[in-house]
């Protein structure tokens, strides 16, 4: 859902609210809609009956499911979600009277989305990471058969990384990595690799590099795969910063040149990686510019923005520009008070 929201949000159209449905609708990642009756839900697939013909959709292809009889406010909420308006979405989900819901899958959706919104807000710096983590943990613990389960694990991993609990994050990413689909595997491995990298030890960095290499070796096509391979390249570049900063720099610059201009998260990650590599190479001036790219252009990628502010604070101080250092530090503290970049000064 995370990736879907980010990449597909612009293209999605609003679904007209219908007070009551006579059927379920499965919306897929390829923008098709399956009007049916959902018959079974598991962490791997969603089974349905379409005019007497059974079928199933693997979870990695399910974008969202509109269930018959679900409250209309859920539609409003989903609309907010597609626009990444997580607080508004949460407010809408909170209006849903769960006691009136009889369908357990609808109930699971409500629980999941609430936890999801809280998680997104926390990761964006405005919510409490620990509280959000508890909610998502509760969902993942109670609903292992939900079609949201793997997504929940992924989000949990992100929350644990944000809380600096990298080892625990690895475990949850690990579950996602065991999914039967390459895109999930790639995504999970990249996330796991980033979590290992964030721990900062040589052993963990080496493990991370292995993961990134495994992603790069995967023979998968498509835009999503391409994006994950780019991330893996960036991750690998980070691993190689100590060994061969110039090579890392060159690799990152290629990514920047090739990445879709609309892929703001990719660019944010790339520029931060470039900045770190340039710092390692002793090129503070260009590193400053790299981090400034994130601060100026990609500030709406919270974790990346936080990291950029962290590095900018140190660089400004080093360059004797105390006023600018103070401003960026203040922004980091105000905007991302619960971020690891604020609390521990980084990894």
């Amino acid at each position: 859902m995370k990736t879907r929201c980010l990449i597909l949000a612009v293209g999605l159209c609003l679904w007209a609210a219908v007070a009551a449905r006579a059927f379920d609708t499965i919306k897929t990642t390829s923008s098709t809609s399956i009007t049916c009756k959902v018959t079974a839900v598991s962490w791997k697939e969603v089974g349905y009956d379409q005019r007497g013909v059974p079928g199933s959709v693997p979870v990695n292809e399910v974008f969202t499911i509109f269930f018959e009889g679900e409250p209309s406010s859920m539609n409003t909420a989903r609309t907010h979600l597609t626009k990444a308006l997580y607080q508004e979405a949460l407010d809408s989900f909170n209006k849903v009277k769960t006691e009136d819901i009889t369908n357990e899958w609808i109930a699971q959706d409500v629980v999941f989305y609430k936890a999801f919104c809280a998680a997104k807000l926390a990761l964006g710096g405005t919510g409490d990471v620990v509280e959000a983590g508890k909610k998502m943990l509760a969902f993942a613990g109670q609903h292992t058969t939900s079609y949201h389960y793997l997504e929940a694990c992924e989000v949990l991993g992100d929350l644990l990384v944000a809380a600096g609990k990298f080892s625990a994050a690895e475990a949850y990413y690990g579950r996602v990595a065991k999914a039967p689909w390459p895109d999930f595997q790639m995504r999970a491995r990249v996330s796991m690799g980033m979590a290992l990298l964030a721990q900062g030890t040589a052993a963990k960095t080496a493990q991370a590099e292995q993961l990134f290499n495994s992603v790069l070796a995967m023979n998968v096509e498509g835009d999503l795969a391409k994006a994950q391979k780019m991330k893996a390249t960036l991750g690998k570049a980070r691993c190689q910063v100590d060994k061969d900063a110039p090579a890392a720099i060159a690799a990152v610059k290629r990514i920047i040149a090739d990445a879709d201009p609309e892929a703001v998260e990719m660019h944010a990650l790339a520029y931060n990686t470039l900045g770190v590599a340039l710092l390692k190479a002793g090129n503070d001036g260009e590193a400053l510019l790299a981090f400034l790219h994130v601060h100026v252009l990609y500030f709406n990628v919270p974790n990346a923005h936080g990291e950029a502010l962290f590095h900018l604070t140190k660089l400004w101080t080093k360059m004797g520009k105390a006023d600018r250092a103070r401003t960026t530090k203040k922004l980091l503290q105000d905007r991302y008070p619960n971020s690891r970049w604020t609390q521990t000064g980084g990894a």
């Binding site: 201009p261 400053l288 510019l289 400034l292 790219h293 100026v296 252009l297 600018r324």
Partner: peptide
């Protein structure tokens, strides 16, 4: 070029003329 210009505009907006 567009990204470069947006970046430049952003630096100016922040008052980072030297940068």
């Amino acid at each position: 070029a567009e990204e470069a210009r947006r970046f430049l505009d952003g630096l100016r907006e922040l008052g980072y003329y030297d940068t």
